[in-house]
């Protein structure tokens, strides 16, 4: 966990670029889903697209709360059409969210 504070990650998917390859779901299945009717990607909870995160010290990847397979930066790199944008901001501890 970084001592600088809480890192927030804002994730957006450009659906005009998405081809439904599912690479984001493979990389971060707690952040991205894939619509079975269209094949296109979506954020799992559209109400919460600002996500609290910490930095994985070994990989340098941003890992969302809950850890595991939630590597959003890896998802952005894996997306074959570069449809995922992530913006990371760092807020002082205790001021981001609850």
């Amino acid at each position: 966990m970084s001592s600088e504070g809480v890192r927030s990650v804002h994730v957006t998917i450009d659906l005009t670029k998405c081809i439904g390859a599912g690479a984001c779901v493979r990389a971060a299945d707690r952040v991205f889903g894939q619509d079975d009717d269209t094949g296109l990607a979506y954020l799992l909870d559209e109400q919460v697209d600002v996500l609290r995160a910490s930095e994985d010290e070994t990989s340098g990847n941003v890992v969302l709360d809950g850890g595991g397979h939630t590597h959003v930066e890896e998802a952005a790199r894996a997306c074959p059409t570069r449809a995922i944008e992530i913006e990371t901001t760092t807020a002082p501890s205790g001021q981001a969210g609850d």
Binding site: I19, G20, G22, V25, R26, Q34, D35, D36, D37, T38, G39, L40
Partner: peptide, 16 residues
């Protein structure tokens, strides 16, 4: 390309 790719995309989702 995208017109055809999107016809096929739902047939190859991870879930399916």
């Amino acid at each position: 390309h995208i017109r055809y790719r999107r016809m096929l995309a739902p047939l190859f989702t991870l879930n399916r």
